[in-house]
Structure formats: structure tokens, C-alpha cells
């Protein structure tokens, strides 16, 4: 482990000088828990959440071009779900990002969500700090858009864009989970399709029910590139909301807690015992916590 750590440190050093091979390997090191000393100062992050198929990857592809034109270096961390059955994943977000495979000032890394129940691996924060330290000025995180990941992203990104589609069902989903309340920026995609306008009206209605609502609802087409410039300027002028610090910390805490539990070496044993009824959930939690504290996890 000590050796790996010093290697991670070396990789960070050469990645900062612009070596892409090192940057990519550094991401792998961080994934496996070898975190170099990071400055952890300011880092610009945007989370993009919304149901699968709504157009998150396609929109990111469009936004990349705008940020490049502004002189930024854009990094994308694109999450896709890990299959709970096989443990494998199919990672295809970058297919929708045209600029991803050629330009020096774009870096796209696909990430399997892993067994983490929140759909966001807890090393994501370290990846962002590392990217920022290596000179990436716009860091975008695409969530898997289902389950807890919508909420958990608030623990990792300074600002979060909720992307919805013309399908009313999607919006109800977001409303239920409280994402609509939390999201810093809201947009409806697929303006080229019927139903998108009424989706905007529906969202405005939901937002209008709460007083002091200042957020607008953007209407864009990631496919045709409409409305993207406006959306970017809203994102750029969006101020990091300090009143959300508690929410962010809460999500970060829960996420790290989850992964402690999920990475417990005896978890399968405890699950078996629970299934056979030989212990209660409380028994399991109590002894798992003890083992975590004693370091013998």
C-alpha cells in the first residue's frame, strides 16, 4: 500500500505537467483507494442528473463545445450502473460526446457505480480534486439517474443540473424524490419533440407553488443544439449555495458510511445469517460497527 501511495504521488506530479497516461492511471489508483496528497482547494464541479434516456450524455457533449470555446479544459466523469447480478457494467456515455475522443482539452472517464447503494462511489470527490489540481477547470459528473444517485450527487457536486424530458412521469419522479427542490438549475430536454413545452409548464407550476422561487426552467434540444448557450450562462452565473452545506455534508457522510458497510469483509456472512434468521438486523449492525471500529473489518 505504501508503495502504491508513493506511485500515486508520482502520477499526480506528472499528470500536473500534462501527461495524459499518468492522469488516467492516477484515476485508476484513486479508484482502488490509493489517494495522493491533494490540495483540496476550490474545484469547479457540476452534477447532471435526470432519468436514464433523457439526454444527459448528449447534452454534456453539447456543453463541452461551449466551454471549450470559452477556453476551459473540460473533464467528465460519467457514471453507469453496475449490474447487481453479474457485477459487470456497460459504459457507453462517451458515445454521445463527439469531442471526447480527440481533443487534448477534453478528458472523459467512464465509471461503474459499483455496489454503493447511492449509485455514487465515494472516491468521486477525490477524483474531482485531482482533476482540478491537474488544471481541469470544468468538471462534469453524469449520474446514473436512478435510485438514490439523484440525491447523493449533492454531496459531491457544487451545483446540480436536473434534466427532464417531455415525459410527465419523469418529472413526477423528480418531484417525489425532492430533487426538484434541491436542484440549482433545471432544464427540459428534447424541445424538438412534442410535449416538451407542456413539461416546462408542469415544472413551472410545481416550482411556483413554493414562494421566492427564482429558478427558471430552461428548454433545450441536446440533439439540435438549441438553448444550450442560455443554459450555460445560467450555470456560469449560478452561485454556490452555502445554505446547502448541511445537505451536501449529509450526503457525503451517508455515502462514506454506506461504503464502509458494503466493503465490510464479512458482509456476505452477515447476510446469510440474516437470511437464516440466526441473528437480527440490530445484532448484525452492532457487531459490524464493532469490527469496523477495531479496524478488523
Amino acid at each position: 500500500m505504501a508503495l502504491e501511495l508513493s506511485e500515486a504521488q508520482d502520477l499526480l506530479k506528472s499528470a500536473k505537467k500534462g501527461d495524459r497516461r499518468s492522469l488516467s492511471r492516477l484515476m485508476t489508483y484513486i479508484e482502488s483507494g490509493n489517494i495522493p496528497n491533494l490540495e483540496r482547494t476550490q474545484c469547479w464541479t457540476l452534477g447532471i442528473t435526470g432519468p436514464p434516456g433523457v439526454g444527459k450524455s448528449t447534452l454534456i457533449g453539447q456543453m463541452i463545445s461551449h466551454w471549450l470555446a470559452m477556453g476551459h479544459r473540460v473533464a467528465v466523469l460519467a457514471l453507469d450502473p453496475t449490474s447487481p447480478v453479474s457485477g459487470g457494467s456497460f459504459l457507453a456515455d462517451r458515445v454521445r460526446m463527439d469531442q471526447a475522443d480527440m481533443r487534448e482539452d477534453v478528458f472523459v472517464r467512464s465509471i461503474a457505480s459499483g455496489s454503493n447503494t447511492g449509485g455514487i462511489p465515494n472516491y468521486l470527490g477525490e477524483m474531482c480534486f485531482a482533476l482540478s489540481e491537474c488544471g481541469w477547470t470544468r468538471i462534469l459528473i453524469e449520474t446514473i439517474g436512478t435510485g438514490q444517485s439523484d440525491v447523493r450527487i449533492f454531496g459531491y457536486a457544487q451545483r446540480v443540473l436536473l434534466l427532464d424530458g417531455p415525459d410527465r412521469g419523469d418529472i413526477i419522479q423528480a418531484e417525489k424524490a425532492g430533487i426538484l427542490e434541491l436542484a440549482d438549475i433545471i432544464a427540459v430536454n428534447k424541445s424538438d419533440l412534442p410535449g416538451s413545452e407542456s413539461a416546462v409548464q408542469g415544472l413551472k407550476l410545481s416550482l411556483g407553488l413554493s414562494e421566492n422561487e427564482k429558478r427558471e426552467v430552461h428548454l433545450v434540444s441536446a440533439l439540435e443544439g438549441n438553448g444550450i448557450a442560455d443554459l450555460i450562462s445560467t450555470i456560469e452565473s449560478c452561485e454556490v449555495d452555502d445554505s446547502r452545506r448541511m445537505i451536501r455534508m449529509r450526503e457525503t457522510l451517508i455515502s462514506n458510511w454506506d461504503s464502509l458497510l458494503l466493503n465490510h469483509s464479512q458482509i456476505d456472512l452477515y447476510l446469510e445469517k440474516l437470511c437464516s434468521g440466526s441473528i437480527t438486523v440490530n445484532d448484525a449492525i452492532n457487531s459490524m460497527i464493532k469490527e469496523i471500529i477495531s479496524g478488523g473489518k
Binding site: 453479474s86 459487470g88 457507453a92 458515445v95 467512464s110
Partner: peptide, 13 residues
């Protein structure tokens, strides 16, 4: 199929 075999598969398009 490789995903179902437990691998992380990145597809390029």
C-alpha cells in the same frame, strides 16, 4: 455478454 460475465465494458460507438 462481457458485462454479464462481470466485466466493466466501455463501448466506443
Amino acid at each position: 455478454a462481457l458485462r454479464d460475465g462481470g466485466h466493466d465494458v466501455i463501448y466506443t460507438g
